[in-house]
């Protein structure tokens, strides 16, 4: 066999084997947790938190915009999860879960920066709220989505979409 043919065969072997070797080594690296996919969406995805018992929900978003999105689902246990759109560069926004009597209060205020004399909002947030029963919702400055009404049996739904008087 000519030397040129040998070189050609070697080249072909290298061309076809190199991607295979790379893929196998990359797969092994992922398996050994050398690469961890923290968040496929690129957002700051906070783990779900538990909620204490409550009878009402009050959602306090930003009045001047609709940067708080609240997705309500129904499940076995009450829990919540924040998905924050703000980046580290622009800092975090104020988000708070608290209780006032028998009311669960969800508060969100995006971070406001003044640039060239004008207010700028860098952030938005999405809250996933899983409830084990239907409770009245009072909302201000928020986008609420009630999704996946499961089970075929639902109690009364009640929403008070008020406008905050400034």
């Amino acid at each position: 066999m000519k030397t040129s043919n040998k070189l050609l065969i070697l080249l072909l072997v290298l061309v076809f084997s190199l991607p295979l070797v790379l893929m196998m080594s990359f797969k092994a690296a992922i398996k050994n947790e050398h690469y961890i996919v923290k968040n496929s969406n690129g957002y700051d995805n906070v783990p779900a938190g538990a909620l204490q018992p409550f009878k009402f929900i009050k959602i306090e978003g930003s009045i001047r915009n609709e940067m708080l999105k609240c997705n309500i689902k129904y499940g076995e246990t009450n829990r919540y999860k924040w998905i924050n759109y703000s980046s580290e560069q622009h800092g975090d926004s104020s988000r708070l879960i608290s209780y006032k009597g028998d009311t669960l209060v969800i508060h969100y205020q995006p971070k406001i920066e003044t640039i060239n004399g004008q207010e700028s909002y860098w952030a938005g947030a999405e809250l996933e709220l899983v409830l084990n029963r239907e409770v009245p919702v009072i909302a201000e400055g928020a986008v609420i989505t009630v999704n996946t009404l499961n089970g075929g049996y639902t109690k009364a739904l009640e929403f008070d979409l008020s406008k905050t008087q400034n």
Binding site: E66, A142, T145, N147, T148, L149, L161, K163
Partner: peptide, 9 residues
């Protein structure tokens, strides 16, 4: 302004 949406997925 608030928006409430009831969806069924």
């Amino acid at each position: 302004m608030n928006i409430v949406t009831v969806l069924d997925h």
